[in-house]
Amino acid sequence: MAAVHRRTTRAAWGFLTPFLVLFAATFLLPIGYAIYESLHKNSLSGPLGLGGSHTVFAGLSNYSRALGDAAFLASVRRVLLYAVVQVPVMILLAVALALLLDTVSARAVRFFRATYFMPYGVPGVIASILWGFLYTPGTSPVLALAGHAGLHPDLLGGGSVLWSIANIVTWEFAGYNMLVVTAQLQAIPGDLYEAARTDGASAWQIARRVKLPLLRPAIVLTTVFTIIGTLQLFAEPLILKPVSTGISNDYTPNLSAYNSAFANNDYYLASAKAVLLAVAAFVLSFGFLRLVGRRGGASR
């Protein structure tokens, strides 16, 4: 008996090892390295500071530099403002699309589902380039049409580009989120609808009283993913930057960390910013989960 148990344990470790090795090498190790880097800095020596450099322990000074950087803090405020708008829009749209598709005929469903999902198959970088063309006066057929109507909206200016980015992100991911919600919808047993209809519920009442409460786990899941994704906004502003006057080098926290590392060659500060961002995403996601967890408990 003990031998069998030992063999089972060994087999379990055997199966787990590939995962654990990869997990450690690609996840734990880099995170540890980022934290290590964030606690160090370069020290210069020699005439003009060009004699040589070596790495010294810096304590929390990179963190205080990041938190004392007005542009970095502004980038955090910007993504929070963006999240306050983007998260509800995204979730409402995804749920509405899923519920609508749930009520139309079977053949149309497949067509629309595929159509809504299709943008997700376009890589974010490509999507941003495509939308960049649509936003640029002179290359955009949409703006050309608007011009004929006497409208000249500036979609890439400082006041509007954040919402132009939101539009790209919504276009990209609403269909995907819809699919998550749809999967949950299809897991709802049909006899619940039947019972509701027998009780005289209208289609609207079924959606509101039966479907929505049962969709709760899917909505929570997509919300958490959307919050994390929103904080990590990166590719869209990076790609639109060359065509927009409204996107600064510290437009989002991720862009700010990227610039510190790859334009300013300050990996230490970049690591501190990355760690701060990871902590913020962690706090917000789990904060949201606790919030909905508590409310869910109270209503039960």
Partner: peptide
């Protein structure tokens, strides 16, 4: 962003850190 992509982004940062680690 959202969903896997959020993690992909996270993953991308990890990738350069991983590369850096490997380089170091």
């Amino acid at each position: 962003m959202h969903n896997t992509c959020g993690w992909l982004r996270f993953g991308r940062r990890m990738i350069w850190l991983a590369c850096l680690t490997a380089l170091v």
